[in-house]
Nucleic acid binder design. Structure first.
Length: 104
DNA sequence: AACCTGACTTCGG
DNA sequence: TCCGAAGCCAGGT
């Protein structure tokens, strides 16, 4: 498989997300050079998280909430993020103003 | 090659 | 602010 595909660039970006920060699917897709490819980021996470190679828990949706449904990993992701210092609001939202990762 | 699916995003009501 | 519908791309079947 190609080494510089969109998928591989997504992997590189994911491992660059700093500890205690989060990124959105759309953001990763855009940084990887494929705006609108948010759903592909999901696929990458499936592949890599299955291999326990990437910090999949640091990826959330544009609303600042966890996309996983309760019982399907939601609580796990929340705990992992809180363990890194990410704070959740009463409604389970993360303040993207403070925790969203910026490659700059 | 066509169809299906998914941890999304955006828009309108 | 919340909900439903439509649009989106790539990999798996």
């Amino acid at each position: 498989m190609p080494a510089d595909s969109f998928t591989d660039r997504v992997k590189d970006l994911l491992v660059r997300i700093p500890h205690g920060r989060v990124a959105t699917y759309g953001q990763i897709a855009m940084l990887a050079g494929n705006a609108g490819g948010a759903r592909q980021v999901v696929r990458v996470l499936h592949s890599s998280s299955a291999r326990c190679k990437l910090p999949w828990h640091r990826v959330i949706n544009s609303r600042g909430t966890i996309s996983l449904r309760p019982g399907a990993g939601y609580e796990l992701q929340k705990e992992l993020l809180e363990a890194e210092g990410v704070e959740f609001g009463n409604n389970g939202r993360i303040d993207l103003k403070r925790f969203l990762w910026s490659p700059g």
